[in-house]
């Protein structure tokens, strides 16, 4: 069952004590800066779809203002975990979870959690771009209009800021009123990122955001992610290990519902401590 928030205030860094993987306690190679506090923390977090257990006792800290990549073979539970962080699994019948999951120390799983407020703080970008069949501008301000009463000038400002942040402004500034579905795939995905940013989230969840895109669009999204990490905590699920190594600060490797290894990205890819991790990142399976 879920418990009220009682664990892991943001400053407490006890991952080495909790994580079974010793590597996470090591400082990242060549990085002198200490690991920042955790934005999202999980302790013995398990999840089920009906009777099928998809995640088993995950202990994981996702550091603030960094990019954390979830990697692992299909069906390992990484997307499920991601979707629990903003409770998108609520709409799936039979989905339930156990253990603790906290955002800056406050519980995310309890019955009293307001998912609407939670999702304002934890935005999400999906695998396939899913702009609403509305204009570009309406897409960007959609979330902002839900949560705030805004004057027209405020809206215009939000649109420009969010589109600039998503590196889309220059491409669309002359046609903000035209339908979002007319954009290319990569532009649509950046629009979805802009839309998520426009509500000022603290955490941005990205579920394989580049898997439906061509290499050029992928490159632009990756560049964008690197920029965004100065202001946002980003969790990205990816199948592409080069991508994980290019853009993330820490990487968590999942296998069959368990967290196998979690450490600084360059460490995980160059000297993994677990055999399974090594096999996976060297391309021997998965």
């Amino acid at each position: 069952m879920t418990q009220p928030a009682e664990s892991a205030p943001p400053e407490r860094r006890d991952s080495s004590a909790v994580l079974p993987v010793a590597a996470s306690a090591m400082p990242p190679v060549g990085a002198a800066a200490p690991t920042p506090p955790a934005a999202v923390a999980m302790r013995r977090f398990s999840a089920w779809y009906g009777r099928h257990q998809v995640l088993q006792a995950i202990d994981l800290d996702i550091p603030e203002r960094q990019v954390c990549a979830f990697i692992g073979p299909s069906g390992c539970g990484k997307s499920t975990l991601l979707r629990w962080v903003n409770r998108m699994n609520d709409s799936i019948v039979g989905a339930r979870a156990d253990g603790t999951l906290t955002l800056h120390g406050s519980d995310l799983l309890g019955r009293t959690v307001d998912v609407v407020a939670l999702r304002r703080r934890v935005g999400m970008v999906f695998q396939k771009p899913n702009p609403f069949p509305k204009s570009i501008k309406e897409n960007v301000v959609f979330g902002a209009k839900l949560h705030y009463r805004l004057a027209r000038a405020d809206l215009d400002e939000i649109v420009e800021k969010a589109l600039r942040a998503a590196a889309l402004w220059d491409e669309v500034k002359d046609r903000l009123g035209s339908p979002a579905l007319g954009l290319s795939g990569g532009q649509q995905q950046r629009l979805c990122i802009a839309r998520a940013l426009a509500v000022d989230p603290e955490v941005l969840l990205m579920d394989e955001p580049c898997s439906a895109l061509d290499p050029r669009s992928t490159a632009s999204i990756e560049a964008l992610i690197r920029q965004l990490r100065t202001n946002y905590t980003i969790v990205i699920v990816t199948h592409n290990m080069q991508q994980a190594s290019r853009i993330s600060d820490t990487t968590a490797f999942f296998f069959e519902g368990r967290l196998v290894e979690n450490s600084a990205t360059d460490l995980l890819f160059t000297s993994p401590t677990q055999k399974q991790t090594e096999d996976y990142v060297s391309g021997r399976f998965g």
């Binding site: 609407v116 999702r119 979330g143 998520a196 509500v199």
Partner: peptide, 18 residues
């Protein structure tokens, strides 16, 4: 209407009715 649009809206913090 694709489920992804509903997900996109919910992920921005809409209620179901919204």
């Amino acid at each position: 209407v694709p489920q992804s649009l509903r997900d996109g809206s919910l992920a921005l913090g809409s209620t179901k009715a919204e």
